[in-house]
Amino acid sequence: MPAVKPQFTNILLVVLLALTAWHAFWKPDPPNNQLRLVFTAEANGKDLVFDQFLYENPSGPGQFRVQNFRFYISNIQLSGEDGTYFEPDSYHLVRFGSQSNKSSIELNNVLLKSYSSLSFSVGIDEPANSSIEPRGDLDPNSQMAWNWEVGYKFVVFEGSLKMGESIQPLVYHVGFSENRRDLLFTRPIEEDLIGTSEVSFKVDVMKLFDSASVLNLAQLQSVKFDRQDARVLAENYSRMFSIEEN
């Protein structure tokens, strides 16, 4: 029997090694699905309109206009039959303006096939709120930063209130780690996450002033550092969001 050539043995060995390595490291790709969260700003059941005195003071005189409305959404989680997905570095600025009353967040690598519940926080967790490290949309040099000793504004509303000829400023800047609100939304059925899917939320700006507490904007024209007032608004903004069923 002729001896096997040494080169031949080498090649065989390399192929075997490669096969072993491939076998050891190869795993089926986990599902890699996209979910887009679409936020639509509304008031009185219609698209929110900026810069016009269209909205009634919920509990007092005058009409108000919206000039700035934005907030942080963080720590988005999805849970389904095959587990829970936590978005890494999950800090998103959701902002609306006169050009668009929609704002969306894309989750690009959801490692789930389906989900039945979705949760996020309005505001920012304490470790991120007390840091100046830029993560996600957190930027200590942005409008949302108070200063590095205080942290971030979670929800910002600016506008004005018109009472007769008089135009008064409205400034609601709500922050402080204690005012983060965690929201959980459950779907009636397990929702597929194959490819790209979308989930829509309504954000009703009127609820900021008219839900858990009903505010008279003429009496409370600004909320910034007063802890009690900030907590009242936090209770209200936790009620601003609703998920739209398909």
Binding site: L93, R95, D139, P140, N141, S142, Q143, A145, W146, N147, W148
Partner: peptide, 14 residues
């Protein structure tokens, strides 16, 4: 700081 960012002292980027 409402217009001039805390470290850069410039206007905001966003």
């Amino acid at each position: 700081i409402d217009c001039h960012s805390q470290f850069l002292t410039s206007g905001f980027r966003d």
